[in-house]
Amino acid sequence: MVLVTVELPPGATLEQAAHALGLAEDEVDTGYGLVPLDPARGLYALRVTEEAGRRVPPAAGPYADPTIEPYGPPS
């Protein structure tokens, strides 16, 4: 899975985001949903399959979703 972004009006739904990006429902992580990044810009993020991520417009991504780990105790 990768992250992609989309600009939509306030209150947008995951279905609207998938439609705007030309993605099918089974290409989208529905459990993750549509996450507002910057309400002032109407910018949202969603998780999609790597294949779907390759098809979205360049401005939408795809973006890396790296593993994050605790910074301690040092080993």
Partner: peptide
Amino acid sequence: LLSRRQGGSAMDGLLSDAVAAFAHLR
């Protein structure tokens, strides 16, 4: 850091979960 999404393990998470966490904190 307890995320169990695809790619995660017992003691790490994925950055996408931090994105969602920060959206909740907003």
